[in-house]
Design a protein around this nucleic acid. Structure first.
Lengths: 233, 233
DNA sequence: CGAAGTTGTGACAAAAATATGACAATAGTG
DNA sequence: CACTATTGTCATATTTTTGTCACAACTTCG
């Protein structure tokens, strides 16, 4: 597995080193930049898979950099995690609105940091599968963006489509509503967990011909699971 | 609310006292050990919820103790926070790799320490084993959140699931109803001990195909034990 | 054996979790 | 801009889980 490259942008060398070490342990490659200017160049040159960005920096602030990244086509899809010392909510909101994929408040543990990074990268990867997926009589075709059962086309909303896509690529495993929100809704969401229930319901309805949907199973107290293994009543 | 117990391992009494005071203020119970040897014994006897471990100690070093804890089934799940005076990179790497859940560099403020402890405990609480566990014909898979016997899926409530998870990760040892309440119900519960009996009953019923459950043994006057060793009548 | 203490068992009502349908706000579309 | 599809939230039904109790079964010990 070729390792991901992560760019750390912070003006304090000590913090950069600390993070660098943690990333190293976790098997990530690490680049460093000490200001937004430098960072911008490195993102274009090196195309890192993720940017860790300190919120408070002298000169151009973190949020400013994010805005610039958003405008720039070359860098539009780089996920960004903000590091921030403040916990004030408006900062979070600002940060998230401006396009950061996640944020983590200092001080943080290396573990927590790595966990966030993993989560965000996983999210970024959760793109559509490249190949059609067939389970039972259900055919999911990401190319034509279509779902059929026995060649009968199924209609569903975009959210249900992403949800199904997620489930198909993550079968046999339980995900909490939180995790599902993370993966399917794209991370920086403040949303009621119960929304997931409703969309599960809609998806179930959509992909269940003749009554039953055997695929999406409810795991009480834990979440949902997509499974092709038949559960007998 | 019954409080968590934390074991402080450091060779300097002054530091132990300082930490002890901080823990006290924060509402944690505190145990102390001055070397790795002593610590190991206390972990087994007292089952602390977390270990604060000084990196540099005369004799067996902190990292050595962590390694030992990892190997030992009885202590495998105790979270560890390393205290270290050094910020040198290799220390951190070693510490993290060896299985410490976090580390904090001296000198630290009591407040920072407590914050870390809270974070790690919160993390530890939610955690299930990551690997499937098989005993005999019983398979416990935390990933799919499934329990099967001979590939036959077993249904049980969330509490039974947690209870089974606890037993599987703490086999061959007797736990009182109190301790079981603590571990499975999540600590600060005020509940009738006899409730445990009922859930034991439910779990037994669930995981016993064809009559017998040989796993969960009653130890009269003491509690229950999960054991794979067959006890003949 | 009988008394006193522990543990097993089934029942049950309260509580918690999930399913479902409806609706207003929003985003897309032509 | 009007029109439709989609979405998130809520209120309400339905289902499952859970803690407790009453009583049965069992142990221990005199």
């Amino acid at each position: 597995m070729n390792s991901k490259t992560i760019l750390v942008v912070d003006d304090e060398p000590a913090i950069r080193d600390m993070i660098s070490t943690a990333l190293d342990v976790a098997g990530y490659d690490c680049l460093q930049a000490e200001n937004a200017q430098q960072a911008h160049g490195m993102i274009i040159d090196e195309q890192p898979d993720l940017v860790l960005l300190d919120w408070m920096m002298p000169g151009t602030s973190g949020i400013e950099l994010i805005r610039r990244l958003q405008r720039d086509d070359l860098t539009k899809n780089v996920p960004v995690i903000m590091l921030t010392a403040k916990t004030a909510e408006d900062n979070m909101v600002q940060g998230l609105e401006s396009g950061a994929d996640d944020f983590i408040t200092k001080p943080f543990s290396p573990r927590a940091l790595i966990a966030r990074i993993n989560a965000v990268l996983r999210r970024a990867e959760a793109e559509l599968p490249q190949e059609p997926i067939q389970v039972d009589r259900l055919l999911f075709d990401p190319i034509s963006h279509r779902v059929t059962i026995d060649n009968q086309p199924i209609t569903m909303g975009p959210t249900e489509f992403r949800l199904l896509s997620f489930f198909l690529t993550h079968q046999e495993r339980v995900y909490s509503r939180d995790q599902i929100l993370d993966h399917v809704w794209g991370g920086n969401v403040y949303m009621d967990e119960r929304t997931v229930d409703v969309h599960i319901r809609r998806l179930r309805k959509a992909i269940s011909l003749e009554g039953h949907d055997r695929f999406i199973q409810t795991v009480r107290g834990a979440g949902y699971r997509f499974s092709t293994k038949v559960v007998e009543e």
